[in-house]
Amino acid sequence: MSWVTLNDMRTWLVAGALAFALIALFAPRIDLTRDAYDVLAVIDITTSMNTRDEASGAETVSRLRAAKTALREMLAKLPCGSHLGLGFFTERRTFLLFDPIEVCENFAAIDEAIAQLDWRMAWEGDSYVSRGLYSAIEVAKSLDADLIFITDGHELPPLPFSGLPPFDGKPGDVGGLIVGIGSRTPTPLLKYDEEGREIGTYAAQEVPQENRSGAPPPDASTRPGYHPKWAPFGNAVVDNSEHMAVVREAYLKQLASVTGLSYAYFGQREDLLEPLVAAAHARPLKVASDIRALPGSLALILLVFLYGLGAVAAGRALIRSSLNLPPPKGAK
């Protein structure tokens, strides 16, 4: 083989394409490390989550529907090797539907389970959010998983004047995220009949406006009708807007502080993965990766360039022939 031939660009392109093609054929798989996540997702399905104040394109949908859509989108973005479990909260506890399972192998089953969550699964009308969150943390800890808890934070009945019930766990022992969902503008709570049909909204007198269990508030003695034994809360009609649904962010941030979880407001975010990744404990996962696509692609690029040079040379020769021009110097 002559030096002229070796110096020919086309020869080098063919040689390079052949070399990369051989590498693509025999390249071994290599182990790469990437982050995976083990997560328990819990969605609040109590009455206030039926409030339609979440935008979905041109449509206004319920908080529950928006939460399910966001969770399904997060599922699609979780890296393979991650595990996702599902539960829902109602009354005062979290009910586990299934343990965390691998997201890619079981994508269709997990996605369908999320889609089928419904407020009619609730067995009580009460909504003790703090106790439901504590219950979810216990379940997540038993599964060695992080937690994403989606709620509007609406306690019904309201918390007693003594405040939050004590958290018996260790703050930060379970990582994860409380997601506040719902508008910051109050909206009347929707009302349903025994058949689950919407029949209007609740009036103030139909919803407990304060919790009268436990000790009365410090200002109880100044209330109309107060009696230390017979009427320790007084007899005045109270309106604390508990019949209005609004995301209780201050309360959810307090819960996050007590439990060591992070807090994120859903709003128009529609992406739960980013705040979850920032709050969760990543698990390093070794994955055997096939790198043959890289040298194969380089071989293809060289071949495309080679035939492109041939096409350019043929085009120039055709133009010179049509114009009766002499060949370029050095051409054979």
Score class of each variant (00 low, 15 high):
residue 3 W to Y: 12
residue 6 L to G: 03
residue 6 L to A: 10
residue 6 L to Q: 06
residue 8 D to T: 02
residue 8 D to W: 03
residue 12 W to M: 15
residue 13 L to H: 03
residue 14 V to D: 08
residue 17 A to T: 08
residue 23 I to L: 11
residue 25 L to P: 06
residue 28 P to G: 07
residue 35 D to R: 03
residue 35 D to P: 01
residue 40 L to A: 02
residue 44 D to P: 06
residue 46 T to F: 08
residue 51 T to M: 03
residue 52 R to N: 10
residue 54 E to W: 13
residue 60 T to M: 15
residue 70 A to E: 01
residue 72 R to D: 01
residue 77 K to V: 04
residue 83 H to E: 10
residue 83 H to K: 02
residue 87 G to N: 00
residue 92 R to P: 11
residue 99 D to M: 11
residue 100 P to T: 07
residue 101 I to A: 04
residue 103 V to Y: 04
residue 103 V to S: 01
residue 104 C to P: 12
residue 105 E to S: 06
residue 106 N to Y: 09
residue 108 A to Q: 10
residue 108 A to E: 09
residue 112 E to G: 13
residue 114 I to A: 00
residue 117 L to K: 07
residue 129 V to P: 02
residue 129 V to L: 05
residue 139 V to D: 05
residue 141 K to L: 15
residue 144 D to M: 06
residue 147 L to G: 00
residue 149 F to Q: 00
residue 155 E to H: 01
residue 160 P to H: 10
residue 163 G to N: 14
residue 164 L to Q: 01
residue 172 G to F: 08
residue 172 G to Q: 11
residue 177 L to A: 05
residue 178 I to M: 10
residue 179 V to Y: 05
residue 181 I to T: 04
residue 212 R to Y: 00
residue 214 G to Q: 05
residue 221 S to Q: 13
residue 225 G to R: 06
residue 227 H to R: 13
residue 229 K to R: 15
residue 235 N to H: 11
residue 243 H to M: 03
residue 258 V to N: 04
residue 265 Y to W: 12
residue 269 R to K: 15
residue 270 E to P: 01
residue 271 D to W: 02
residue 274 E to R: 11
residue 275 P to W: 03
residue 276 L to M: 13
residue 276 L to K: 08
residue 278 A to E: 15
residue 282 A to W: 06
residue 283 R to K: 11
residue 286 K to L: 09
residue 288 A to L: 13
residue 305 F to V: 06
residue 307 Y to N: 14
residue 312 V to A: 10
residue 313 A to D: 15
residue 315 G to S: 00
residue 318 L to N: 05
residue 320 R to I: 05
residue 321 S to F: 15
residue 323 L to I: 05
residue 324 N to I: 10
residue 326 P to W: 04
residue 329 K to P: 14
residue 330 G to H: 09
